[in-house]
C-alpha cells in the first residue's frame, strides 16, 4: 500500500473542501457502526440461546471497535470524544435509519435480518475504501474486514435456520418488509454535492448508486432463495444521512447520553491517568 500521486496526504494537508468530504465520509462510517452497536446491546442476556447472546454481544463490540477506529480519524481534525459522541446534537448524526429503528419486541428475526442487510453493505463499502486516496482510511480497512467475516456467517446461518420453519419465515418476511426501506437508506447521500466530491477525490472507489446496485444483486437472490419476497419499496424518508431521523433516534440518543448528562460531564472520563500527566 505505497502512497500514490493521487494521495491526499496527511490530515493537516487537506484543503477545506477535501476535509469536508473526508469528514462526511467518516461520519457515515462511524455513526452507522456506533448506533447499530447501541441497538445490538439491547439483546444482551435476551437472545434466544446463550451462544447467540454471546455472538451478538461480540458483534456489538466489534462494531463499537470499528466506530472507534473511524472516530479516531475525526479526532485528527481536533474533535474530542465528547464532541463526536456525548455532546453531538442528535440532528448532526449521519447514520442511516437502519441502525436506529428499534427491534420489533423480542423479534430475533429482526436482529439477524438487520445484521445480514447491514453486513453485506458494510463489506461492499469496505471494498470501495481499500484503494481510498486517504491513507488514514485505507490503512484501517484490512483490520475491519478481517473482523467482519463472521458477522456474515452468523447472520446467514440464523437466516437459513429460521427460514426452514413457517413461523420463522413469516417473521422474517415481516421484518424484511419493515427493514428494507431503512436498508436502502444506507446508500442515501449526506449531501449530494459532497458525496460527488467524495467520489471525485477518490476517497471511495464506488459511488453510492454503484454500491446500492451491488448490494441489491447480492441480497435479493439470497433472500429469494430463502423463500422471502423482496419488497418493491422506496428508501425510507427520512433516511438519516442528512441529519433528519425517526423519532426513535431521539429516544435512543437520549438514552445513551443519559449518564453523561446526569453526572454533569463535560469530557469523557479515562480509567487511567495519562502517565505523562501523572508525573508532572
Amino acid at each position: 500500500m505505497a502512497t500514490t500521486d493521487a494521495d491526499l496526504g496527511s490530515p493537516g494537508d487537506l484543503d477545506e473542501g477535501e476535509r469536508e468530504a473526508v469528514e462526511h465520509l467518516l461520519y457515515r462510517l462511524a455513526d452507522d457502526e456506533f448506533v447499530l452497536a447501541e441497538r445490538y446491546t439491547e439483546w444482551q442476556v435476551r437472545a434466544p440461546t446463550l451462544e447467540s447472546d454471546l455472538s451478538l454481544s461480540n458483534i456489538a463490540q466489534d462494531e463499537l471497535g470499528h466506530a472507534r477506529l473511524w472516530y479516531d480519524l475525526l479526532e485528527d481534525f481536533g474533535y474530542s470524544e465528547s464532541d463526536l459522541v456525548w455532546e453531538r446534537p442528535p440532528g448532526e448524526w449521519r447514520h442511516a435509519t437502519l441502525s436506529e429503528v428499534p427491534f420489533a419486541e423480542g423479534d430475533w428475526a429482526d436482529a439477524v435480518l438487520r445484521s445480514y442487510l447491514y453486513d453485506v453493505a458494510e463489506g461492499i463499502r469496505l471494498s470501495a475504501l481499500e484503494e481510498s486516496s486517504y491513507a488514514r482510511i485505507r490503512d484501517r480497512v484490512p483490520k475491519i474486514r478481517g473482523e467482519e467475516g463472521f458477522h456474515r456467517d452468523h447472520a446467514e446461518g440464523w437466516l437459513e435456520r429460521l427460514a426452514t420453519d413457517s413461523g420463522g419465515l413469516d417473521r422474517l418476511q415481516s421484518a424484511l418488509d419493515r427493514l428494507f426501506p431503512h436498508a436502502l437508506a444506507l446508500f442515501a447521500p449526506t449531501d449530494p454535492e459532497i458525496e460527488d466530491r467524495i467520489d471525485d477525490l477518490g476517497l471511495r472507489t464506488a459511488s453510492l448508486s454503484e454500491m446500492r446496485g451491488e448490494w441489491r444483486s447480492e441480497v435479493e437472490p439470497f433472500l429469494s432463495e430463502l423463500g422471502l419476497t423482496v419488497p418493491d419499496a422506496d428508501r425510507h424518508t427520512p433516511h438519516g444521512r442528512g441529519g433528519d431521523h425517526t423519532g426513535d433516534w431521539d429516544d435512543l440518543h437520549d438514552d445513551f447520553t443519559h449518564t453523561y448528562r446526569e453526572l454533569g460531564r463535560t469530557e469523557a472520563r479515562r480509567i487511567m491517568v495519562d502517565p505523562d500527566e501523572a508525573e508532572s
Binding site: 494521495d7 490530515p11 493537516g12 476535509r19 481534525f77 481536533g78
Partner: peptide, 29 residues
C-alpha cells in the same frame, strides 16, 4: 494515540489532538 489526550485544547496549540496540526509525511506510506 488520540485517547491519551483528546482535549484539543485551543489554549495550547501543541496539545495532541488540537486542530489540524502539522503532520509529517513520516507516518504515512
Amino acid at each position: 494515540d488520540p485517547d491519551l489526550d483528546p482535549a484539543g485544547d485551543p489554549e495550547n496549540p501543541n496539545a495532541v489532538g488540537s486542530a489540524a496540526c502539522s503532520y509529517t509525511e513520516y507516518e504515512y506510506g
